[in-house]
């Protein structure tokens, strides 16, 4: 995919109508380049999750424009017919908890996405193993998720988010359940993967430890984003 990462212009989301209507997003503007990891921070109720759901094509925005790579996917209405296929092929997700499928082993958890897209099993598993190797969890390839540590599970979840080589990955509090060291490791991995696979990564976080590692940060408050330059500290937390 490559190209221009993700660009959001004037994105709005209104819940309800009439007197009870709530404007969760009031015109969000964001741009994340391929290979870049940006932070999205804000207090509870500021609209982070709503923004993430809009970006993830899980809920319908009310207005605005979203461009993924070279393709306009939303312009006051979805321009893509099959939102499932959009999510499957062009958007990667990393959740607060890994949410691995408990009845699939590590390889198949990662390989499931390309399989759903119609890729042959062997080819999908090969792609999965390549990513697991890149994330240094290849030695647990045949293990079931319940046998993995929290850090290993999160790496597998990252591999799953990357396996279809999406132009954008949405990471929702990916370090929340981890200690500082493991949180830094996860952010470093995301940064490495973003560079390696030319993927734009948006990390929604409250985690004070990792916020300084972003080079750019979007603050969201009352449904509006404000861009700030981040500190871009090293991932070992010493900066």
């Amino acid at each position: 995919m490559g190209g221009k990462g993700i660009r959001i212009e004037g994105l709005k989301k209104r819940y309800g109508s009439g007197d009870t209507a709530v404007d969760a997003l009031k015109g969000v503007d964001m741009q994340v380049a391929p290979g870049e990891v940006v932070g999205l921070i804000g207090p509870s109720g500021s609209g982070k999750s709503t923004l993430l759901k809009c970006l993830g094509a899980v809920i319908d925005p009310t207005a605005g424009r979203m461009t993924l790579g070279d393709e306009v996917i939303y312009d006051d209405g979805w321009k893509v017919r099959d939102l499932r296929a959009l999510r499957r092929d062009k958007i990667g997700f990393v959740f607060q908890a890994p949410y691995l499928i408990p009845f699939l082993d590590v390889t198949d958890n990662v390989a499931l996405l390309p399989m759903l897209a119609g890729v042959a099993n062997a080819e999908a598993r090969s792609s999965a193993l390549e990513l697991l190797t890149a994330l240094d969890v290849q030695h647990r390839a045949r293990a079931m998720p319940s046998r993995l540590s929290g850090g290993e599970q999160q790496r597998v979840a990252i591999a799953r988010g990357l396996v279809n080589r999406p132009p954008v990955i949405l990471a929702d509090e990916p370090t929340a359940p981890l200690d500082s060291e493991r949180a830094m490791t996860v952010i470093r991995i995301l940064d490495d993967m973003a560079r390696k696979y030319e993927t734009a990564i948006i990390v929604v976080t409250h985690d004070e430890k990792i916020i300084p590692t972003f080079r750019r940060v979007y603050h969201i408050r009352d449904g509006v984003t404000h861009e700030e330059a981040g500190e871009g500290r090293p991932f070992d937390g010493t900066g």
């Binding site: 993830g56 899980v58 999510r87 499928i101 499931l112 996405l113 759903l116 799953r160």
Partner: peptide, 16 residues
């Protein structure tokens, strides 16, 4: 339920 939500989010078809 959670696994099904994840499956749907990552693009699994309803028929699957």
């Amino acid at each position: 339920i959670r696994e099904i939500a994840v499956l749907k989010l990552i693009g699994t078809r309803d028929r699957t």
